[in-house]
Design a protein around this nucleic acid. Structure first.
Lengths: 184, 184
DNA sequence: GATCTATTTCGATACGAATCTAATTAGATG
DNA sequence: CATCTAATTAGATTCGTATCGAAATAGATC
């Protein structure tokens, strides 16, 4: 559906046809002259545009008047370009956690801040915890290093990771705990 | 430019990739798994999306993190789906007259009303006058018929066409005057 | 009903792009 | 520096579709 719409738009000839139609109605002959293609070719393109609901057809005698369907155009553009809509194409819906993490990341992939609200804190920490491999020991120096790649305040984040039972520490070494033990 | 953008969007695999990226950043491997394609194929698609400015790339070690460029997405969507922008693709810009006529037409190609304002009246009448062939006589019955295809009030329009020197009448027959004689 | 006109449908060809495997590059690790 | 990993680039194949000429359709005209 949306794919059909985009495919219909994504061709130079059809864009130019729509360009002509944006000004006013045209017959097939006029369009063929306008874009320097033969009638059958134009007819073929118009059929695609019509399938996609991008143009309207009005028949008068045996002349077919094609026009731009502005409504469909704006309706569909909104559908395509909303982030959540886009996510639907992957079958994957965006969950709240992902959205929170995304909003906390700079373009360089660093955390903008330590989240003040509790609701946001957990997904951020979970994301950070996943930077560690499970079933492996980390000396404190390496823990700090990994955290600092995401935020300068290694102390706060390290403490919180442990507080949420995402990391554990014993005699100077750290390891990642299984997700089932993390505090919700 | 805009064409490149649309072509980048108009493919199922790439839409699904964008869908995944809409949720959060992904590496190439993750994406390949997510859409069930091989890495090189995904890499190829990502290159296109990057060319079109739809995704961002952040390199960390030898892992490449791709993300959605939401800004570009909305900026471009606005560019594509404005009617006047679309017209630019045809090389033809929309002039004021065309716009006026378009707003006066129903989906069936009939005139919604007789334009009250003088500014609008002329382009509407000019459009109507062009329904007549030049160099040919029309009996009044046929003039009425042609006008009625566009609006029920044949009297008003017929009178105005003559008033604007677009049609002329002599002893019961009408003919279209050359455009150079039309009153501006 | 025969003819003329505008459009569409059909069938063939050609061009572009999607996908894969294999080879190469760039960065990290020991 | 040798090796390992993630990604990209190159090359080959396949698939989709843009385009055209020819034939068929639908409406108008005589």
């Amino acid at each position: 559906m949306v794919l059909q719409f985009l495919k219909a738009l994504a061709h130079e000839s059809r864009l130019r046809l729509l360009g002509l139609l944006a000004a006013r109605e045209h017959s097939v002959q006029e369009l063929a002259t306008g874009v320097a293609l033969k009638e059958p070719t134009v007819s073929h393109h118009l059929a695609m545009l019509r399938e996609a609901g991008l143009v309207t057809l009005r028949q008068d005698g045996n002349t077919h008047w094609y026009g731009l369907n502005q409504k469909a155009l704006s309706r569909l553009s909104r559908a395509v370009f909303a982030r959540d809509q886009l996510a639907a194409f992957a079958g994957a819906e965006i969950n709240e956690e992902d959205r929170i993490v995304r909003n906390y990341l700079t373009p360089e992939g660093r955390l903008k801040a330590f989240p003040a609200t509790l609701k946001k804190r957990r997904p951020i920490l979970a994301w950070l915890a996943k930077q560690f491999e499970e079933g492996r020991d980390y000396p404190e120096s390496e823990v700090n290093e990994l955290i600092e790649r995401r935020h300068h305040d290694r102390e706060t984040f390290r403490r919180e990771l442990i507080g949420h039972r995402m990391l554990a520490r014993k005699s100077g070494v750290y390891w990642r705990l299984p997700e089932s033990e993390w505090i919700r």
